[in-house]
Design a protein around this nucleic acid. Sequence first.
DNA 1: CGTCCACCGGAACCATGGGCCG
DNA 2: CGGCCCATGGTTCCGGTGGACG
Length: 498
Amino acid sequence: MSDEPTTDGRRTADRDFEVDLDDVLEDDEDGDEGLFDDLLSGEPIFENKEVLRPSYTPHELPHRKDQINNMATILVAALRGETPSNILIYGKTGTGKTASAKFVSQELERTSQKYDVPCEVEYINCEVTDTQYRVLAQLANTFIAQNRAFVDERVEELRDLREAAEDDPSVLESDDDNDDHLDFDSPEAVDEHVEALLEEKAEMDDVPMTGWPTDRVYARFFEAVDYVERVAVIMLDEIDKLVEKSGDDTLYNLSRMNSELENSRVSIIGISNDLKFTDFLDPRVKSSLGEEEIVFPPYDANQLRDILQHRSEVAFKEDALSEDVIPLCAAFAAQEHGDARRALDLLRTAGELAERDQSDSVTEENVRRAQDKIELDRVVEVVRTLPTQSKLVLYAILLLEDNGVHNVNTGEVYNIYKTLCDELDADVLTQRRVTDLISELDMLGIVNAVVVSKGRYGRTKEISLSVPVEETEAVLEADSRLSDIENVTPFVQARFDN
DNA sequence: CGTCCACCGGAACCATGGGCCG
DNA sequence: CGGCCCATGGTTCCGGTGGACG
């Protein structure tokens, strides 16, 4: 993109609007005198907010005992040095899949340390790392890094040994923590070994983010895993996204690795939102991956209440919640296919709102407002981080909506989009591409696009905005690359008149 | 009925930007 | 360096299509 961030042609934008914008964009901490004093003196509501964040992995997951035990039973094999069956985990968002899996893997790694069995879990989120190349590269890099650390450790050990040998050569023979069964007959032999190790280490470069042939990355990864004896559990979260975007090659490669590995074993845990995603898989992959399947059903309102109860005891000060807060959060989230993450979000946001009001307890009202806020925040965030072209498309839709045209069709949007691009000096994408962008917006839940046939008058997408107009507009106009847009709108407006 | 609109959406194909290797 | 590999995101091309209209 060649357009400079044009500093700022909109200083004169009307004040009301600016205020609005700030409200939308930031969690503004207002308080004009003694900024922090007020906030500090206010009755604190939270004891420990972390517990309510999605990133937190709880030690106890209510109503997930069965699934967890199930996983554990399968994975103990790793602690015996055998290859555990591959596992597929199904369940909608916020049903505790990831949390449970992470919990189990933590336990697994902990136990493996206790008994000194080499066993590791690698977590990969396939929504972020969504191509074969990237998955392999990331895996390769973590293992390579580990191997380097391993070599360092070993070298350290040997140097100590060497040191000791200076004083008392007998340590060389009676070395009991010698796991490679190497015997050194002289201090020089130790040196040599160290030398060799360091040479190997020098070979262990990271895989670059892009550029290599995939099979080479694969080879590198293979080598890295096999470097020491271990069981590697690879956890692929949102595995359906990976399959969707880049096919099942990755899974195929991973699942047949075991037959060729000398020292180590790999086992895969796939986590999926989509029950049917195995339909697209090669039957071989399907059967090897789905050796064990575990389903996480959605929580019902009661279970959600338990979870919230559980966490709120840690998260909040005593008596900070009024009676109906938790049931209400649970009820809202239960409507949303039993999403626990949502429930926790709701509770946390409600707490934050109460806190900001300097109130000492969270009320039902806070929860309702939290519900709105979360939705708005989500939209703002999504829209803000949209690529420029998508923003333009969205803006076009917005403009149409502004002018009272509802259920717009692709052609109209494309026309407006074109004029917008012209005025802003941006590249104009083809209609084909714009269709895709619209579909993306649809999937993000920002617009609603349905293909309808208008008989004689063709077949098109009927598009309508599913987010509040003003807020969205504010966010779009906050983008520096679109900052000239206000000067442009008159031109577009003119188009409507003919 | 058949026609035919105005776009959908798959597939094949380019352009770009990253990187390796000799 | 030039020749090669790769992924990504865009473009070109084009067959496909639901249903109001004649």
